[in-house]
Amino acid sequence: MSIAVAQVRRDFLVAFRARADAVHPVAFFALTVVLFGLSMGPDRQAMGELAPGMVWVLALLATMMGTDTLFRRDFEDGTLEQLLLHGRPLFVAVLAKLFAHWCVTGLVLTALSPLAGLMLQVPAEGLPALAGSLALGTPALTLIGAIAAALTVGLGRGGMLAAVIALPLFVPVLIFGAGASLAAASGASPAAEFLWLGALLAAALTLAPFAVGLALRVSQEY
């Protein structure tokens, strides 16, 4: 367990020292929300129907931007080698690393999402579901994105390839996430979508760290 604590502490410290990196996805999210808000025109009704999906797509893209660099620096400076050699069990170390990363991206996006929803005219009754669906969905996105990032970390600039690998896996999360907030906004119960999101998160949480660990091992074979 001390591995997990030490890894989270370290990654928080690194994120704080390299603030520009950590802020990048969140800034992207905030800026694009503002731009959409300005460009969509004054039709509240039409916008309110599109907005939950839009916030979700932007959160997805921001998460993907963040996961792209998740392992790259550690790969380059050799700390990844040390993690693979000594970070036993690797599952715990990987999970800790992803948790720290989610806290500085996904959690912040979730916290900002009601504001983004208001800006894009999401009906008030849809806002809790929007934030709730992102709270369940962004960890799943981070876990899935991490698999793609780990698979491509040894390839230098693997950003595009990582996106191609991760996007099909992102789709179910996106569908149920956006579906939950849309259902709530139109007055229906989002329970089914939330249960699906929970199931997807549980699956990602149990399977992704193993996949990430294996992919990181492969990245060392050069």
């Binding site: 380059e76 700390t79 080698e81 000594h86």
Partner: peptide, 24 residues
């Protein structure tokens, strides 16, 4: 190895703390 295994954002002291935790 050739790569130092030292995170440039952390001090040597912080790096070694992390390494000690990894090694248990």
């Amino acid at each position: 190895g050739h790569k130092p295994g030292v995170n440039p954002m952390l001090s040597a002291l912080e790096n070694i703390r992390w390494y000690l935790a990894l090694e248990g």
